[in-house]
Simulated assay, not measured.
Amino acid sequence: MPFSGREPVIVGAFNTPQARVLEGETSHSVTLAAIRGALDQAGLGVADVDGLNILPGLDYQNGTRVFGYAMGIPYFWVGRQAPGPASVLEAASAIESGVCDVVVLAAGEAGIHTDRSSVAPWTRPANEFIECWGLMTPAEFALSAKEYMHRFDVDPLKVAYVASVIRNNGSRNPEAIYHGRGPFTPEDILGSRLIADPYHLLDCATTGEGGSALVLATAERARDLPVRPVRVLGGGSESWGPSYTHPPTYDRVGMLGRQAADRAFMMAGLDREDVDVFELYDNFSWEIIRYFEAFRYCEVGEGPDFIADGAIEVGGRYPIVTDGGTMSHSHTGESQRHQRVVQAVRQLRGTTSANQVANARTALVAALGDIVLLGI
């Protein structure tokens, strides 16, 4: 291939301050702040950018074009994949193939979720099976978790342990919305009110406001920049069908991401045990167990014991969600998926604000069926 020497790397990874409510901010303002922060960190300016994938708030259709025009970029490549691992892989492919040289990925949210007595708006789209029956995101994800726990006779405390680890990571992180809200035990998780069996309140993601952005460039370009580049080693992406219209039973969604993980490790030339840190999208606690089984770290049904006894804590062999994730750090709609990548980059650079994994050189980032492997 003529562009095979154009290795894609991440040179900027930035989160704005996160909060339950950011007074006076909008989805556009926090997204713009994240873009500025990521470009400044990379030592680049708007004039260097020729690729964009930007999602302010819930503007899935026009966000990138609106931002590109407003930023004064005459012409630009447009990415279309969802924030997080999928958009990183798409941008890396565009750079590697010579379509563009510097790509900004960003998303942010503020001022959308004003009714704190209800679930977030992105979890209740206007589908016929939601508005009349109430099949919202917590209930959807609870279906497969409950079926799995029944099938393998899982002690609820073992699932609650996952949430306690993530929330304790956030409690130690000064950048997390719920900094200082801990420590938690599995019993504390099960003691919170039931939302959708088997999930209790503290098993579930929170909501927040803020922005997140990434900048990718070629490794050659990165040599002149003031930051340590993080390599995009491999990845994969897969989905299973339309949400909210077909039941996400365990048999249907339990192995989501398995083939994507196989491809990612093959592309990267890595073994499973080469990964040092796992930044996994933690929308609900059992999903972490599902990831480790789907990605072939253990056999199906063995996940609850595999992650037990400190294995997924900082200092354990498979440290997860080290900033506190959606449960404790922040959940700003789609931009949280970018935050998984940002935290992985910070871990590999040794610049995280808390819970630094010693000598981390390789990270796995996953959001449902989207996976990317990063390394230094």
Rank of each mutant, 00 (worst) to 15 (best):
Y318V: 03
Q336R: 10
I307M: 09
E273A: 07
T352V: 15
T322A: 05
R337D: 09
F284R: 03
T249P: 03
A260H: 05
R361Q: 13
A308W: 13
I288L: 14
Y281S: 02
P247G: 05
H331D: 05
W286I: 01
V277T: 12
D305G: 13
T351Y: 03
G257D: 05
T352K: 06
L280G: 00
T351I: 04
A311S: 06
L256Q: 09
D262V: 10
Y244Q: 08
A294Q: 01
F292G: 07
A260P: 06
G269K: 14
V253M: 08
G315Q: 10
Y250T: 00
T245L: 09
V365N: 08
S353Q: 12
E299G: 15
A344K: 05
Y291F: 15
G257A: 02
E313H: 06
V357N: 00
E299A: 14
T362W: 10
M267R: 15
G315M: 10
R252Q: 00
D276T: 07
T322D: 11
S335A: 15
D276C: 11
A311G: 07
V275K: 00
A260Q: 03
Y250H: 10
H246A: 06
D262R: 15
H338P: 04
Y291W: 14
R272W: 08
A294G: 03
G324R: 04
S335P: 11
D276N: 15
T362Y: 15
A360Y: 13
D274C: 07
T322L: 11
T326N: 13
M266T: 14
D282R: 05
E313D: 12
E287G: 12
V365F: 05
T322V: 11
F306Q: 01
L280A: 02
M327H: 12
E273T: 09
D323A: 11
A360E: 06
G254T: 01
A308T: 05
R340H: 08
S330E: 08
R349A: 03
G350R: 01
M327A: 12
L256N: 06
A311H: 10
G316K: 08
H331S: 08
D305S: 14
Y318G: 00
P319I: 00
V365G: 03
Q336I: 14
D282I: 06
A366F: 04
P319A: 08
D309P: 06
R317G: 00
T322Y: 13
M267W: 11
V342Q: 11
V321N: 14
I307G: 01
S353W: 08
L256T: 13
E287C: 06
T332A: 09
G257Q: 03
F295I: 07
A264R: 07
A358E: 15
G315I: 03
H331Y: 12
A344P: 10
E279R: 06
A268Q: 11
A354R: 13
G269N: 06
W286R: 09
V300W: 11
A261V: 07
C298M: 09
R290T: 01
H246G: 04
D271A: 14
S328V: 02
P248E: 04
V321G: 01
V357W: 10
M267K: 15
Q339A: 09
A261T: 15
